[in-house]
Amino acid sequence: MQFFVMAKTVLKSLFRKPATVKYPFGPKMLSEFARGSISIDISRCIFCGMCQRKCPTGAIVVTREEKTWNIARLKCITCGYCVEVCPKKCLQMSNQYTEPMLTKHEDLYKNA
């Protein structure tokens, strides 16, 4: 049984920099490998629909005729399964998280 065991830690924290990041005034720490959001290089996409079939939450909708690739950002769980199965490797996992949004809109990419 001891008293003031915490004192050392408390004194140390008095002189230490805060453990938290002063976001949004300072930069946020992002790992290079962070699974943030899915990005697509639409010019290379062949609209095979592989990502749509494999997506666990059904966030991706691909139409072959109109050449569109549609992702519901709020449904996406960024597991990266689509990136793995993409035959043309045109999907990429970016470490930037999706920005907050007011409506449940979807991101539509079109190859004209």
């Binding site: 453990a19 720490m29 790992s31 290079e32 490998f33 962070a34 699974r35 769980i77 960024t78 597991c79 990266g80 996992m93």
Partner: peptide, 19 residues
Amino acid sequence: REKILDIIENTTGGRVIFA
């Protein structure tokens, strides 16, 4: 705990869901 989460994020890309 945050230090462990950083290691996890650097190796798997996620903080709690490793996938």
